[in-house]
């Protein structure tokens, strides 16, 4: 677990250094994600070291959003009198975006023969 954590942090550190050093618009951890992905394709055996730790982290991903989520309660006054309009806009657009994404995915999957998933 410590080895896997060290590897994750090292990739994040590398990504952060690249992102800030070169002034890239992509967040550092996303660059770390891409770099780890490339490393896994070159050295698939690294999976065994990582699996248990990343399964635990991703299985409890919700926990990691809690501290930022509590901030929403603290900052609800930034909504001002636009509160109901903003909540309506968020709800409608998020539902619409989910449906638009699923419908587009399914339509193109049917056309390209990627329909069946094994």
């Amino acid at each position: 677990m410590i080895r896997a954590l060290a590897i994750l942090l090292a990739f994040q550190l590398g990504g952060e250094t690249l992102a800030r050093g070169l002034g890239l618009p992509v967040p550092g951890p996303v660059i770390g994600l891409a770099a780890l992905f490339l490393t896994l394709t070159l050295r698939p055996r690294l999976r065994e070291t990582m699996q248990a730790t990343t399964d635990t982290i991703l299985g409890n991903l919700s926990l990691l959003f809690v501290p930022a989520g509590v901030g929403v309660i603290a900052h609800l006054d930034t909504f001002g009198r636009n509160g109901p309009a903003l909540i309506a806009a968020l709800t409608v657009s998020t539902g619409a975006a989910i449906l638009a994404g699923v419908i587009a995915f399914r339509a193109v999957a049917r056309l390209t023969g990627a329909d069946a998933d094994e």
Partner: peptide, 8 residues
């Protein structure tokens, strides 16, 4: 680190 984990 969770974002980096998504590579798995």
């Amino acid at each position: 680190p969770a974002t980096v984990s998504l590579a798995m």
